[in-house]
Amino acid sequence: MSTSAQVVPVAAGVDRRRYWLDREGVLGPLLLLPTVVYIIALVGFPLVLAVLYSVSDATVGDQSLDFVGLRNFRAAIGDGTFRVALRNTVAFTLVSQLIVMLLANLLALVLSADFHGKRLVRFLVMLPWTTPVALGVLGWLWTLDNVYSPIDYAFRQMGLLGPSIGPLRVDNPVSDVVRWLGLGSVFGTGSNVLWLAQPALAQLSVLLVHVWRTLPLATVILLAGLTAIPQDVKDAANVDGAGFFRQLFYIRIPLLLPIMAVAFLYGIVFTFTDMTIPFILTNRGGPVDSTQVLASWAFIKGIEGGSLGEGAAVAIFLFPVMAGVAALMLRLARRTETS
């Protein structure tokens, strides 16, 4: 008689297993699983392996891990080439990224203005970033060729390079002006600058290619940052009487700083770990290891030289900087999330 005595389950007759995917406790871990597997297999495992190799005597021929303590690190630091590579890596990264920051700010400022053909210019600026590194560097290899460099050719035709007397001297209106300015043969009286054959010029070349390569990304990041500054704020600065430079240094750049930090950190990651540029451009860090960097040196030692342990020890030196950069990036991301 009484209906209240009988408690009917809400989902009576419905197979609850049909809805198991609706439960957060099931679906969440399931969706996370691919990422976790990926990170463990392709990030975690190699990192652990590298650390293990670096304290072992593993070679390409014998991968058994016999513990040798810090012997590999001592050997690496004792090696003159390693010290050059460490210095180069830091110098290439910092100098190229400082130049990139300067140029990217200028470029972004120019590209944020309205002018005809803006889209084409933006597209062209982006091109170096979309080109595969190896391909781009090959282009530069030809451009900076010790014999056939078109830059050298242009310099020769302008009288900036090559003999200023004798039958090989170039004579045209441009070279006349250059000589009149006292710039005749400033790049030497030989027929070539030899960009990649002299240590200092080779280092400069690597630096320039780094700039060429990372400038587009930084520019696009800064451009996005500039566009994100509200028009009202710029208008207010205008009305408040601020001229171009006051607006630049008191409004735009301060508001752009967090974005600039992001671009800077990205640039550091790309240049600090790069080995393609010295490997291809200066034929494995030449001349005489003067453009050697940590990544290429680790590859030469560990893979080509066969000493996995020493190679891993060299590569481990990249880790603190990368970890620091990663931590900074996460902090920046968290700050943007909360503000």
Binding site: D232, D235, N238, V239, G241, Y250
Partner: peptide, 15 residues
């Protein structure tokens, strides 16, 4: 900046 005016925006446009 040469008009000697002041403007208040809908968004306030504070720095």
């Amino acid at each position: 900046r040469a008009r000697h005016i002041a403007m208040v925006f809908q968004s306030y446009a504070l720095y």
